[in-house]
């Protein structure tokens, strides 16, 4: 059996981060959690995750800025946004930059799972 894909999770709220990690692991993936965008950028260089699930509003660098930084660095991993305060401008900005999903908190686990699986399929196809 191939090694399970690594899903990176970035959220400044510990409860949400842990919960999302648990959900991802229950699906059989490997979860790597980071409390900030900068931690993720520093740590993930060694092994590229299969997908990134990130909050939008975070202290320091926001989720959207993180995505832009990845694009700028030529890293093409799929990004799924989950936010407690979705606005249309944020949403279009994220999707324009190539986001795989833009979800609203609280969202059903099913929605995260569908989005995640779709992102992974797309990635495998390329």
């Amino acid at each position: 059996m191939a090694e399970a894909p690594v899903i990176a999770i970035v959220d400044d709220d510990e409860a949400v981060r842990v919960a999302t990690g648990s959900l991802v692991r229950s699906l059989g993936y490997t979860a790597e959690t980071y409390s900030s965008a900068r931690d993720f950028l520093r740590a993930s260089a060694a092994r590229e995750p299969a997908c990134l699930i990130t909050d939008v509003q975070m202290p320091g660098m926001s989720g959207v800025e993180l995505q832009e930084a990845l694009v700028a660095a030529g890293r093409r991993l799929p990004v799924i946004f989950v936010t407690a305060f979705p606005t249309e401008s944020l949403r279009s900005r994220a999707l324009a930059a190539g986001a795989s999903g833009f979800l609203r908190k609280p969202c059903e686990g099913r929605a995260i799972i569908d989005c995640l699986e779709r992102a992974l399929r797309q990635r495998a196809a390329t």
């Binding site: 409860a15 919960a19 999302t20 959900l23 407690a84 908190k105 609280p106 099913r110």
Partner: peptide, 27 residues
Amino acid sequence: ASIAHEVNQPLAAIVTNAEASLRWLAR
């Protein structure tokens, strides 16, 4: 926005944890 963020975070955690727990049990 502040209220949404403050209240939605724990709600999101609750929903996701519950969802995850169901999946652990459904294995």
